[in-house]
Write a protein that binds this DNA or RNA. Structure first.
Length: 273
DNA sequence: AGTACGTCCTGATCGC
DNA sequence: TGCGATCAGGACGTAC
């Protein structure tokens, strides 16, 4: 379930693996439904002989601006890992993971391999980001993620804070696990009405979102070094147990499991009132 | 407009 | 023991 730390880890992995500067020499799209735009033929032709300039991230989206030389306009390859997506840069001879859905051939006998067990991942190739990118809120690793920005977005919203934290237009990169973790760290009940949060709540929440993501990222950085060249994925980097009745790490009381907007939600009824 | 729910997917796990 | 039902969840489409 890639959320911001997993996507950022993937970004750093791709850079370390030398994807920037590599040239696409072909592509095999094994699950066409993942391709949102353009149609397959245009997608593959559009990638051909383009060079990856850099690997950027906006929320959970990976953005690969491409250099196509004199051919214009310059396009961007956009990747979203969905729930089970993962990327590898490997030598052509290296046995591929059984769940590789798409293969992008690179110069120098290497391949960019897109793994995706459950086929929730998505891809776009566009020369106009605005046409395909949904509106994204501030990124918690950036400077514009402030208590004021959070308060403004939640101001007149009556939905439970947990549901709104998951909206990418409010917090870019947030996902189910880190939403629960951030609320647990900040002592805020996930079912509370967003508009009812005090200034103090918002400040604490902002701080805890940053803490949850930063802690996870550090773990990914370490694991990436330790297990190179296999990138880590799915590290257990949160403190709140994701099981009903488990002891709360803070007070020892039983953790409650419930559903908010059909998402599994875990919290401590004692610490998060 | 805001809120909520169904849908897409596969594999693991649950319950009868 | 075995097999069908349920669960997991990111983002979008649809309904209210």
């Amino acid at each position: 379930m890639p959320e911001l730390p997993e996507v950022e880890n993937t970004r750093r992995y791709l850079i370390q693996a030398g994807l920037p500067g590599s040239t696409f020499t072909g592509a095999d799209i094994g699950w066409p439904n993942a391709l949102k735009t353009p149609p397959m033929e245009d997608f593959v032709l559009g990638l051909l002989e383009t060079r990856v300039q850099e690997i950027n991230r906006r929320g959970k989206y990976l953005l690969l601006p491409l250099d196509s030389g004199p051919r214009q306009p310059a396009a961007t390859l956009i990747l979203h890992l969905g729930m089970t997506g993962g990327l590898r840069v490997q030598p052509t001879g290296h046995a591929p993971h059984p769940m590789v859905r798409h293969t992008f051939w690179l110069n120098g006998e290497r391949e960019l391999r897109f793994i995706d067990h459950r086929k929730f991942a998505k891809m776009w190739l566009t020369d106009n980001l605005k046409d395909v990118m949904p509106p994204l809120g501030p990124d918690p690793l950036g400077e514009d993620f402030t208590p004021e920005a959070l308060g403004w977005a939640l101001n007149d919203r009556s939905a439970p804070i947990k549901a709104l934290l998951l909206e990418q237009s409010i917090v870019a990169g947030m996902g189910n696990l880190y939403a629960d973790e951030s609320l647990f760290l900040s002592g805020i009940n996930p079912m509370r009405q967003a508009s009812g949060l005090s200034t103090g709540d918002l400040e604490r929440l902002r701080e805890c979102v940053v803490t949850a993501f930063s802690t996870a990222l550090e773990a990914y950085d370490e694991a990436r070094e330790a297990q190179w060249p296999d990138p880590p994925m799915g590290l257990h980097t949160w403190s709140i147990p994701r099981k009903d009745g488990e002891p709360c790490p803070r007070c020892g009381g039983p953790i409650s499991g419930t559903r908010i907007r059909a998402r599994g939600t875990y919290f401590c009824p004692e610490c998060q009132r």
